[in-house]
Each structure stands twice: as C-alpha cells, then as structure tokens.
Simulated scan of single mutants.
Amino acid sequence: MDEFDIDAEYEKYMASEPGAGFDSKGLGLRAQKKLLGKMSSKKIAKVFIDDTTARVLDNAYRILKDYMPAKKDADKILKYVIKTVVKIGILYRNDQFNADELKIAESFKQKFHSVSMTVVSFYTVDFTYDKNFLSHSVEECRELLQQLVKRHLQDKSKSRIDIIFETFNDPTLMDIIFKPDGKYKDNMDKITTDMSTLMDEGNL
C-alpha cells in the first residue's frame, strides 16, 4: 500500500488552487480522503466506528451473507456502508457543509432516528409490522442523504448509497427479518438491543 505523499498532494493542491496560498484545512481534507481510499473496511471500522455500531453492522452483515446470493455481495454492502458513513463524517468534521446542507443533515438525523425507533418497535411489539410504512420511511432517508452529499461526492459514491438503501429496503428481506421466530431472530435480537442502546445514548 502506497503511503500518503504530503508533498505530492501539496503540489496537486497548489496547481488546482493557483494563488490561493497554503490552505491547511483543504490539504487536510484531501489527506483524509486519500487515506480513506487506501484503508480496508475493517481498518476504517476500527478507527471511526464505535463498538456498539460495529456490532449492529456485524449482525446486519451476517443476515446479508445468508440472504444474498453470494458472500461477496454482503462484503460489498458492508464496505459501502462503512465508507459512506466515514466520508460524511470527514466532510462534517471539516466544516464542508453549508447552512442549507446542515439543515438537511439535521432532517436526515431525525428521520433516521425515527426509522430506527420504528424498526425496534416493529420487531419487539407483536402485530405492528407495517412494510409499506417502513419502506416509505427508508426511502425518505435515502432522498435526504442524497441531497446532503449532492455537492460533495462523486456519482460512483452516490450510486453506492442507492445500492445500500435498495438492499435494506428489499421487501422480501423485510418480511423475513420481521417474521416472529424467523431464521434471523438471534441476529435481530442483538441488532435491536444495540440500536436501543445507541438511541438511549443519543448516538442514533
């Protein structure tokens, strides 16, 4: 794996921003993005994602690995999720979002929290599962997230976001995971317990 070359990146930055002078924030952002591209999803997860969230992702991965046609499909989705979360975190910590985008980010946070509460409720309370309601809410999350990253991420990254949401919004998968005493009960028990913890701590 090549090391991040600060001198080379500085030259690239200065060439793209003639007369701008040294911008430590801009160069720092480029450095973080460069390093992100060179890190494996497991290494990224250890650096940027807390243990409880990591457990949620691990159990979601186990479900996808069993449900999807091939293990590599589940690997791909997990990689997309982790890199998307980290890229947005990098943008946020480096103050890249403008005022309108910060409002979108807050709307997304509220909607995602609502979806998380809905998932836990549908799973833990018998006869409350409403596939159409959940699917519509997940789609609203996808639309808000795409609005948030529209100005910042490349089309390839945006398409990966769509793939993530399409995967988890699969109606057949929803029916299976919300089925009482279904094949993924053990994984869903752990996922909903950790999601409840994250919400109680204000992290979801």
Rank of each mutant, 00 (worst) to 15 (best):
I63G: 02
E9I: 06
T118M: 13
T128C: 05
S157T: 14
F108L: 12
K71Y: 00
I176S: 09
K72E: 07
S196A: 11
Y92I: 09
F127L: 07
M199F: 10
D181M: 10
K71S: 12
D66H: 06
S114M: 11
K158G: 12
T167C: 01
G26M: 00
I164H: 12
K111D: 00
I63C: 01
S159Y: 15
F97G: 04
L27T: 03
Y80E: 00
A8I: 10
L35E: 06
L57E: 06
N132L: 13
I104R: 02
A54W: 03
K185F: 07
R55S: 11
S41N: 07
V138E: 03
G202T: 07
S159R: 15
M14A: 11
I104C: 00
C141K: 07
Y129E: 09
K158N: 14
S116T: 15
K72Y: 06
K12Q: 13
G89K: 05
H136K: 14
F178Y: 07
Q147H: 07
I90E: 07
T197Q: 09
M14V: 07
E143H: 08
A31M: 14
K111R: 12
T167D: 01
D100A: 14
K65W: 00
Q32F: 08
D5R: 03
V56S: 02
S121Y: 15
A8D: 12
K38M: 13
I177N: 00
